[in-house]
């Protein structure tokens, strides 16, 4: 958070500020107005999309069988909230997807950071593994869904896919961050006699926090993709399963409601990470 943001926050909180120049107050006001304008346009875009989605099928411009309507989603949602012997509540489905995603990206972050640290520690290891990592990262991991299903079974294959899809890019990103640390900072620590472990803990890791957060952002999205794709194949629970099921029985209401929940889940995840980023970056 910059000084300016702090000032704006303080300004917003108190409403009035004494002891600042009128020009500065002007500047703050303009700043706030421009931020509000951006928000307004963002909301307008969302509104236009929703209206088009509602109106086009109703006017038979597009086939409602293929698209459903926003207004149909709320009733469908309420209906899907109930759990029946055949079908669990949509909240249970969503929770299952969220849990798998969180497990997936947490595992990817922890394992990815550990692998990146090992590569940093043993430079030779990196030089040997580099081409394999790049190839593994470039592989379309979704091709492995059936294999994972056979190897790991229904539940584990979903976690496995979620991890597989985000792990390699995490390793590459974090390792790149480690390498981007100014060697002179490391030299500085060495002038005090720092051991390699101390350099890792006191210089390399804290210096890579922005990279770690960037990796987390990429990761959260990828893990969700992995979970959904895994669920297509193997689950009888989860939003991916619901989408697959709704498609098979040609009930677009179910598909669209699930997709909407998915969109909300991604937004919440994004908000959570942005909040974490703000909390961490306030110190920088």
């Amino acid at each position: 958070m910059s000084k300016v943001d702090v000032a704006i926050a303080a300004d917003a909180a108190s409403g009035v500020r004494r002891g600042v120049s009128p020009q500065y107050r002007d500047w703050l006001r303009r700043e706030r107005r421009s931020r509000l304008a951006v928000r307004a346009v963002q909301l307008a875009i969302l509104a236009v999309c929703l209206v088009l989605w509602e109106v086009l099928p109703r006017e038979q411009i597009v086939n409602p069988l293929f698209t459903s309507y926003p207004s149909a989603i709320w009733p469908t949602f309420l209906q899907m909230l109930k759990s029946t012997p055949q079908q669990a509540s949509i909240l249970t489905h969503a929770a299952s997807t969220i849990l798998a995603t969180v497990i997936g990206f947490t595992a990817a972050m922890v394992i990815g950071t550990a692998i990146a640290a090992a590569l940093w520690w043993w430079n030779g290891l990196y030089r040997v593994l580099d081409p394999y990592l790049v190839v593994a990262n470039a592989m379309p991991k979704t091709a492995f869904v059936p294999i994972f299903y056979i190897w790991l079974g229904a539940t584990l294959s979903i976690y496995g896919m979620s991890l597989a899809i985000s792990l390699f890019v995490t390793v590459l990103m974090i390792y790149g961050g480690f390498q981007g640390i100014d060697p002179n900072k490391i030299k500085l620590a060495q002038t005090f006699g720092a051991s390699k472990a101390q350099i890792l803990v006191k210089v390399v890791l804290p210096g890579s926090v922005p990279t770690l957060i960037a990796a987390l952002k990429v990761n959260a999205g990828l893990s969700l993709v992995g979970v959904i794709v895994g669920e297509f194949q193997s689950a009888n629970l989860g939003l991916g399963y619901l989408i697959q099921y709704g498609g098979q029985v040609f009930k677009m209401n179910i598909v669209m409601t699930s997709v909407t929940i998915l969109a909300i889940v991604s937004s919440l995840m994004y908000l959570g990470i942005s909040w974490l980023e703000a909390a961490v970056m306030r110190r920088r």
Partner: peptide, 19 residues
Amino acid sequence: GPSRKVGYMLQQDYLFEWR
């Protein structure tokens, strides 16, 4: 190797921006 007896102030400050 580096010894506690010696203090070395590098040509640039290299302060850690997170501290």
